[in-house]
Design a protein around this nucleic acid. Structure first.
Length: 465
RNA sequence: GGCGGCAUAGCCAAGCGGUAAGGCAGAGGACUGCAAAUCCUUCAUCCCCGGUUCGAAUCCGGGUGCCGCCUCCA
């Protein structure tokens, strides 16, 4: 069994074979940093981070690049509205991005390039495209000519004619073809600008990703990821620019995630029906959102709802309870004889987990295998007074391996003198049948989000997720 | 008009030809001073109609419903 991924370029599942053996060049479209990101934006960030982790866990050396778009119309507009500058706005929301991303357990990319730091690279590509006859300059703007690239439309499976006839874009006299798009935009008075062969201006959106991907990963990369709303025109345009400039195939595997839906509509900034990750974090542990995003296959839409998050929280609690029960048992139980059922359950869970993940990153299926082992561990802990050490060790190793990819086990075992003292007092109260006092202490701690559990091995506490 | 996706129990969600994973919620029971956690039992024939097949949720055809892209959007 080997990894198979669904490639949007061919619309088929294909065996994953990187261009260079054991190495993966992976690029993901990052945020435009003019605001907090919402949970729809969070989906690709979480997903592609997870794919990267899985690839790394299975032995690939991954170079992972995710950009920041820090100059475009939205940046300029927001900076004007809020009385700040574009660079200040970018700094602020790059920092906010990392705060939320860290909370969601998203690892830092190897490289987080910013468009404004790559202007030289961008100008170089635009010049190349003009030289090769794929682009033309008009009044300080530079446009890409879609008819110069016969394969234009190969990702979205549309011909230029079909795209034109369905287009809702405004006619722009400067363009030779309505589908031509800006590589470079002349700056208007008061806008940020950079000097270029075509005068003062700034890069178009699509060219950024081509430039940054090429600079840090080379002309041809293995995986390019993003939301499916980027298929057209963003990724189609990236292909056109990059392949015309380099003469090589730009990307081997195109992966796109489906949207978050809310009330049967796509969640999006423009519709205004979004919830930011920052909002969610006020009500839920961010790992609950992480679990929620991983509970369905990445190419299926997810319907967002409060109930959905509640369910995710309960499920995540079940996993975490098992993990902490397991650790507690290791510290507090004596060995018992071999438990074949547990040993077999670990083997089966590992196999099932792997089979699911290798089938186009089927995280929902993988969760099924994880829960199967949760049940088996719980059964073992319930049916035995002691502990089958080897089996439990194998289960813990599996959970730890999973966690390096899924990242939602709470691995830290808390210790707190004040809580420990209250817990000790409660034990005494219970021993002397002073249940009024013991329940008081339990309620007191519960109000602080501390949950008490009485086990045959003694009382213990944990934090509410 | 073009391209594409989805429809599986109250809810979420795998499965993609061999007789329905998993989670949440619910019901009954065990354990507990009461809880919590946990365990046991229980809870679906897969939108409709045809077809192919020994056999279909899974393939084909036709419906119905919902959604997305074709403009900034993850």
């Amino acid at each position: 069994m080997a990894l198979v991924v669904y490639n949007d370029l061919t619309r088929k599942k294909e065996p994953f074979e990187p261009i260079e053996k054991d190495k993966v060049r992976f690029y993901v479209c990052g945020p435009t940093v003019y605001d907090f990101f919402h949970i729809g934006n969070a989906r690709p960030f979480v997903l592609f981070d997870l794919f990267r982790r899985y690839l790394e866990a299975t032995g690939y050396e991954v170079t992972f690049v995710q950009n920041f778009t820090d100059i475009d119309d939205k940046m300029i507009r927001r900076a004007n509205e809020t009385g700040t500058t574009v660079p200040e706005l970018a700094e602020r929301f790059i920092a906010e991005y990392f705060e939320d991303a860290d909370a969601l357990g998203i690892k830092r990319a190897d490289i987080h390039p910013r468009a404004t730091h790559e202007i030289g690279e961008i100008i170089k590509i635009v010049e190349t495209l003009i030289e090769k006859g794929h682009a033309y300059e008009k009044e300080g703007d530079v446009y890409f000519s879609v008819v110069s690239f016969p394969e234009y439309g190969k990702l979205s499976k549309q011909s230029i004619d079909e795209l034109v006839s369905g287009a809702r874009i405004e006619v722009d006299e400067r363009k030779n073809n309505p589908l031509d798009f800006a590589l470079w935009k002349a700056s208007k008075p008061g806008e940020p600008f950079w000097e270029s062969p075509w005068g003062k201006g700034r890069p178009g959106w699509h060219i950024e990703c081509s430039a940054m991907s090429t600079k840090y990963l080379g002309d041809s990369i293995d995986i390019h990821g993003g939301g499916s709303d980027l298929v057209f025109p963003h990724h189609e345009n990236e292909i056109a620019q990059s392949e015309c400039a380099s003469g090589c195939q730009f990307v081997k595997y195109w992966l796109h995630n489906a949207y978050i839906m809310i009330d049967k509509e796509k969640m999006s900034k423009s519709l205004g029906n979004f919830m930011t990750v920052r909002d969610i974090r006020k009500k839920f542990n961010p790992l609950v959102l992480r679990y929620f995003l991983l509970s369905a296959h990445y190419r299926s839409p997810i319907n967002f709802s409060k109930e959905g998050l509640d369910q995710a929280q309960s499920a995540l609690e079940r996993i975490n309870n098992c993990y902490s029960d397991l650790n507690f048992a290791v510290a507090n139980r004596n060995p018992c004889e071999k438990d074949d059922a547990l040993a077999e359950a670990v083997t089966r869970a590992r196999q099932g987990y792997r089979d699911s993940m290798e089938d186009d990153f089927n995280t929902a299926g993988a969760l099924g295998s994880i829960f199967d082992l949760v049940r088996a561990v719980n059964v073992h802990l319930t049916e035995n007074e002691g502990l089958y050490r080897e089996g439990i060790k194998a289960a813990k190793d599996f959970f730890d391996d999973v966690n390096r990819v899924f990242g939602f086990f709470q691995t830290e075992e808390g210790s707190d003198a004040e809580i420990d003292a209250l817990l000790a007092e409660r034990v005494e109260a219970r021993n002397s049948k002073n249940f009024k006092r013991s329940d008081e202490i339990r309620d007191l701690l519960a109000a602080k989000g501390i949950i008490i559990e009485d086990t045959p091995q003694g009382a213990r506490w944990k934090r509410q997720i």
